[in-house]
Design a protein around this nucleic acid. Sequence first.
DNA 1: CGCTGTCTTGAACTGTCTCAACCATGGTGG
DNA 2: CCACCATGGTTGAGACAGTTCAAGACAGCG
Lengths: 280, 280
Amino acid sequence: MSRRNPSQTHGGQADRTARSAVSTMADLLQLTGTPVERPQAAERIPVVLRHLHAGECLVLEGAPVDALFFVRAGTFKIFRTDEDGYEQVLAFAIRGEVLGFDALCMASYPVAISALEASAVHVVPCSDIPSLSQALPAFGQMLQHCGSRTLAHSRELVDIMAAVASEVRLARFLIQHSRRMADCGLSPSRFLLRMGRREIASLLGVAHETVSRSFTTLAALGLIQVCDREVGIRDMDGLAAFARSTRRPMDAPLIVRARLPANGSMPAQSRRPTVHRLAA
Amino acid sequence: MSRRNPSQTHGGQADRTARSAVSTMADLLQLTGTPVERPQAAERIPVVLRHLHAGECLVLEGAPVDALFFVRAGTFKIFRTDEDGYEQVLAFAIRGEVLGFDALCMASYPVAISALEASAVHVVPCSDIPSLSQALPAFGQMLQHCGSRTLAHSRELVDIMAAVASEVRLARFLIQHSRRMADCGLSPSRFLLRMGRREIASLLGVAHETVSRSFTTLAALGLIQVCDREVGIRDMDGLAAFARSTRRPMDAPLIVRARLPANGSMPAQSRRPTVHRLAA
DNA sequence: CGCTGTCTTGAACTGTCTCAACCATGGTGG
DNA sequence: CCACCATGGTTGAGACAGTTCAAGACAGCG
């Protein structure tokens, strides 16, 4: 299952690159997008920055809760592994999001978290949270804000998974992802997915083959353009309209997914262009 | 859709029964199960108790965010309605849980919340949150705790919906519900579902007929006992084992759900016993 | 180079959706 | 009081979509 996983949690040598800068409150507020009333706090707070390489595990499922994290850079996968080895992905997290908030009310982490690419997080020891919250009201606000946003995300995900058709699930996922990318200041219509088909499939609750097929279907409809993990959204309005389908679209829409247009609207390009990347 | 809905939000006359007691901090901490370090706060805080009757709406989707709620009694349904009228249930909330936490980071409620039975909530105006958090550290802790718990719930739900087989989804739902009932001090093995099949179906992401069939299947397996909305868990371990099935159970387990035992293990009783309620 | 892992595509099976009855209940009003 | 209707739950039958098994293409890596 786990591909390369060189250092569990952080096997000794990770600590080398770990401890580094101590951030300011203003920095964290800006990172998390917390709307703060009194932007007074240029206070330095004792959170360290930890770097992780692709595939490295930040927290293990069942480990004692010792810290909270704020994603500075990179992408994370939040997942649970049941005893038969199946990996259930519960969320993906990117810059500005909090990790481990759901563990605050328990003794051990209910989920595992790993980095999908080279990433970095600010580490806030649990023991510091009460004192920080009291000393810096902005910190408490930030925690509230991030927790709230994470819950909203999770609720959105429930909405995504509730869609019947797999193409609709994928469309909703892409739209959510697009909005998140925009929130990070990146292009909402052209991005590189940091996760594999299998992980998307797990999140969406379908087989990975189905995700593959759904990608090609959406592409055949002219809504998106896909080249491996590189995704371009060609028709955002159309994609949004497609994503709105709930039950039986009532009329035509079911024809479109019956079979691909048959007249290769795709320029018959091989799956991996090898050279030209996702023509604009 | 909405059955009787006499007062939208609270159409004037609801305010009559609304305003009442002002709670103490200790009361709320106990209600929400917040582990507090210094149980000093017997402080009285300005939160009012609001009563709702069955079917009444606490917040409307899209309404401006003005308050946060803590469930004192009853059951609530958190849901979203898309433009074609389909109601997507995102969660159920019971005693001790926070409502509206996901709205803290936005201007308007992303979801609607309605009472499934006669219920009561403590109302905390949003404008009071910063001052309360600063004046009473325990309040901030409580908010954190409840928000964290709600997120954990939502993540669990994702796990529930990720299950392939509908019976497994239902089994997981029942187990989660059972644990929640236990947390409230109620019996974990015998409870009355406050929501209809259609609402469970929406939450689980299946058709309501499928929920019905799954109920009968689980009952036929001897794992539970169902009589309309009254549910008894006969074999918690068996149910938990059944709920663990992820993908293709590998061997036998698929036989059990192939067809009901055929030898009516159910005493041929009509759906509604009319007199004897769910024999022990 | 062969290996491994990811992604894609094909074909058959099967579970769930959908449509359709049916029954029981509860409320309404003649 | 009972006919009537609306609601909620159950069950059956057919069709379709997704899972599953299987194969193949391609890239990265030792």
